[in-house]
Simulated assay, not measured.
Amino acid sequence: MTYPNTKETISLLKEIVSIPSPSGNTKEVITYVEKFLNELNVETRRNRKGGLIATLPGKDDANHRMLTAHVDTLGAIVKEIKPSGRLKIDLIGGFKYNSIEGEYCEIETSAGKKYTGTILMHQTSVHVYKDAGKAERNQENMEVRIDEKVHNAEDVRALGIEVGDFISFDPRVQTTASGYIKSRHLDDKASVAILLQLIKQLMTDNIELPYTTHFLISNNEEIGYGGNSNITPETVEYLAVDMGAMGDGQSTDEYTVSICVKDASGPYHYELRKRLVQLAEDHQIEYKLDIYPFYGSDASAAIRAGHDIVHGLIGPGIDSSHAFERTHEESIENTAKLLYHYVQSRMVL
């Protein structure tokens, strides 16, 4: 038995987080994932939303599994070009303005041109604005300073920048000697890297799965509907692989795989949850059970869409979700091990 290589997973993760992919503008990263899978001779297809589905045939083709991770991230979009030549933004995904203050960013025009900038408070300079520390971090006060010689809206439009252009945040990915991975967008590109390495290991070892298994790399999860379609009628189990959220009252940490009991959508399937726990215990995999109070996944989106499936949710523990995220290689490894055994296990029904 050979588990997916954790160092290779982290190397792949660093590449994926470095590709801008805010929800609504994910073509480049989907192409990257598609190329990775095609080089493994894995059958893939794109859905109309722009997501990617890879399929591994199994012994049982009457009952299918689907695993999903999402490659879309938080981001922003140009709301208004201000008379000063700065940009007012609108957020893509559920996060707060304070979490992007001071962040470097990239503006991509509809023609494909890219410009760098910085997200700042309008009242940033303490030498000028008495309320610099007290002013609210909101849409009215925060703006993008473009790294080009612009003095007014006309100068900005001359660059090709317009309302509706996408803005991505610098991931600032780093790995440490102590095993931590620090980066924006570990939600959920850590899980995407884990699934890709899992598929690579299954192909390398020529492992035949017990059931035909689909892997959906969804691209609209952060806005609520990435994984709610393209689920085959034969699909019985649907497992979302997404981050485990950390904070006060949570049991999730950065070193184990988090198995979700319940989120804002309600409880996940009880029997599947128990099966995941049993697999973890049988194979000495470190795990934590947890509840995420303000959270939804592609699996819960699929349930809301009316699919008759058994749904579950696991993932690596991520600190400071939707902000300055961090996890540890041990969490990546434990998540990969549980998935490796899960895809080779029998179904709950």
Rank of each mutant, 00 (worst) to 15 (best):
N141S: 11
M203H: 07
D170R: 15
A132P: 01
G133D: 12
A158R: 09
G164P: 09
R157P: 00
K189V: 04
K134N: 13
H214P: 00
V173N: 13
N206W: 02
T213S: 09
L198A: 01
I223Q: 08
R172F: 05
K134F: 07
I231D: 04
S191P: 04
R172S: 08
A158K: 14
L186D: 00
K149F: 08
A193T: 08
P233Q: 02
L159R: 03
N152A: 04
A158Q: 13
V173K: 07
L186V: 02
Q139S: 14
I194S: 09
R184M: 05
I181R: 08
L159W: 07
S178Y: 15
D187Q: 11
T176N: 10
D187H: 12
G224Q: 00
T175K: 02
A135M: 09
P233F: 00
L159D: 03
D131K: 08
D187C: 11
A135D: 11
V150R: 06
S218I: 05
T232Q: 14
T175G: 07
D155N: 10
L216V: 10
P171I: 01
S191I: 02
A193I: 09
E140H: 12
E148T: 01
N152K: 07
E148I: 00
L186Y: 05
E148F: 00
A193V: 08
G133T: 09
G224I: 01
D205N: 11
D170L: 13
M142V: 12
K182D: 10
S218A: 14
D131M: 08
I231M: 03
L198I: 01
V163L: 09
D131E: 15
G226A: 05
T176V: 13
D188G: 08
Y225S: 14
I207T: 15
I199Q: 12
P233V: 02
D205H: 02
V163Y: 04
V163W: 03
S168T: 14
Q139R: 14
L209E: 14
I194R: 08
Y211V: 08
P171A: 04
N230P: 06
K134G: 09
Q139F: 00
G179I: 07
K182V: 12
D165E: 02
F215R: 06
A177W: 11
N219V: 15
Q174C: 10
D170M: 12
S178T: 15
G227E: 06
Y211S: 11
D131P: 06
T232A: 15
K200V: 02
N219A: 12
